[in-house]
């Protein structure tokens, strides 16, 4: 059973009061997320990431298509008992303290008072909220609210946690802590579905990603496969390479670029073929020594930019086309 499954999930909004114009926020999204995965839901602002998460939380209703969580339709109260959700730029009752907020949510999950206090305390420790937990939330910074938001999403030990831009508003230390938290969740078998436009987070955390552009799924799959598909050569760093040996390799087309690193060390760019082992053997026969060999491949950022620009060219916006403003 998939943790999350959507089938042709579509959402139209209308904008304008006197002359309402429909626009497509999400276009027939079909997606499966397995249990225990850390799934990255990527896309630029306005791509439809938050719309998708709101559909999965049934904060909005789909125009067509359907979505299931743990094999049941979204909105099922039994399913809600097993999931956690961090909204984008969360806002909570500012007259409550962080402790009170978490205890309130724990009460809604049906925990007894002692258990509520224990859970709230443990989670606030885990997200790095110290003595401030007894301050009203109106005194919290954006980053601290984000930490409280993450804590409330985990109050019920969820099987699936949905995080909408979890790193937003956090300082580098906070980002690292949340990354570690996500990895700990993964290690204990929790499925993590998080949206982000920070690609480094996805590269560091995700087993699979989906890239959404203008409400349309551009691509989805295992990150390793996507990147492997994009390997476009090799970077070879050698020392003791003579100028003559370099010119010969260039002439044969075995080296497409070379950058001197000083002290007879070079960073060479090799094509995909012939195999790098063969080129390396040739160079070593002429006195070069291996320092390192790495595949040259697109980063997720390159991949992302290419898909965004490609999709934008392929899908000019129409009155019912993608590209409308994402609801705030």
């Amino acid at each position: 059973m998939d943790a999350i499954r959507t089938e042709a999930l579509t959402k139209h909004y209308t904008s304008g009061f006197w002359r309402p114009r429909p626009y497509l926020a999400l276009d027939a999204l079909t997606l499966q997320v397995g249990q225990g995965e850390v799934f990255g839901f990527l896309g630029p602002n306005g791509a439809g990431k938050t719309t998708t998460l709101k559909l999965l939380m049934q904060l909005i209703y789909p125009t067509s298509g359907r979505a299931e969580i743990l094999g049941k339709p979204v909105g099922d109260v039994g399913v809600k008992q097993r999931i956690g959700y961090l909204p984008e730029q969360p806002y909570f009752y500012d007259y409550l303290t962080a402790e009170e907020l978490l205890e309130y949510f724990a009460a809604i999950f049906g925990y007894a008072p002692a258990e509520r206090r224990a859970r709230a305390s443990k989670l606030l420790d885990e997200v790095g909220i110290g003595a401030e937990r007894r301050l009203q939330l109106r005194k919290f910074s954006k980053g601290m609210l984000q930490r409280v938001g993450v804590a409330q999403a985990l109050i019920n030990d969820p099987e699936i946690v949905f995080l909408d831009e979890p790193m937003s508003g956090l300082d580098p230390l906070g980002r690292r802590e949340i990354r570690h938290l996500i990895l700990r969740l993964r290690d204990r078998g929790c499925t993590v579905f998080f949206s982000s436009h920070v690609l480094g987070d996805a590269e560091a955390l995700c087993s699979r990603v989906a890239i959404l552009v203008n409400g349309h799924l551009a691509t989805a799959g295992r990150l390793s496969e996507m990147l492997a598909f994009q390997v476009r050569g090799w970077e070879l760093v050698v020392s003791g390479l003579t100028e003559a040996a370099l010119q010969k390799a260039r002439a044969l087309g075995h080296v497409t670029g070379a950058a001197p690193l000083g002290e007879s060390r070079y960073a060479l760019e090799l094509p995909l073929t012939p195999p790098p082992e063969r080129i390396l053997a040739e160079l070593m026969a002429q006195g070069a020594r291996l320092v390192s060999l790495n595949p040259l491949r697109d980063t997720l950022e390159d991949f992302f930019v290419r898909h965004v620009s490609g999709d934008a060219r392929a899908r000019p916006s129409t009155s019912l086309g993608a590209g409308g403003p994402e609801p705030s």
Partner: peptide, 14 residues
């Protein structure tokens, strides 16, 4: 308006 409802309605309630 303040979006506090998002976190609340995701909890087990109708």
């Amino acid at each position: 308006e303040k979006r506090s409802i998002y976190a609340l309605l995701s909890k087990p309630m109708g």
